[in-house]
């Protein structure tokens, strides 16, 4: 599962490829299809997006929305005291200890 993803407003993409050039994961390609403007539009072709936003930063047409995995919140579930120092145990949202 990728850490991030991107969504393209493909109808407003002009296929300039600057996002493809800027992507450190080589996750993007031009589609063989064209949009109503007549441009090949960019698509995400790999499942390795990190949500770094590089593509969106250089996009001249502001057609890229970037998502990133939510940060896991860690909630204390037990507290042990009276030992030489305090120890905190947490589990993540899926219930796994960490």
């Amino acid at each position: 599962m990728a850490k991030g993803t991107v969504v393209f407003d493909i109808e407003n993409c002009k296929g300039c490829e600057l996002c493809i050039e800027a992507c450190p994961q080589d996750s993007l390609e031009l589609s063989p299809r064209i949009n109503a403007q007549g441009y090949h539009y960019v698509v995400l072709v790999k499942d390795n997006c990190t949500g770094c936003t590089n593509c969106a930063l250089v996009c001249p047409d502001a057609v890229i929305t970037v998502y990133r995995e939510k940060k896991k919140t860690r909630v204390p579930v037990a507290r042990i005291s009276g030992v030489t120092q305090n120890i905190t145990v947490t589990i993540d949202e899926e219930g796994k200890p960490s």
């Binding site: 991030g4 993803t5 969504v7 407003d9 949500g51 936003t53 969106a56 930063l57 502001a62 057609v63 890229i64 929305t65 970037v66 998502y67 990133r68 995995e69 939510k70």
Partner: peptide, 12 residues
Amino acid sequence: ALEQMECVYARP
């Protein structure tokens, strides 16, 4: 998939 994600960049 997006539900597990947060938006980190959008057109202003």
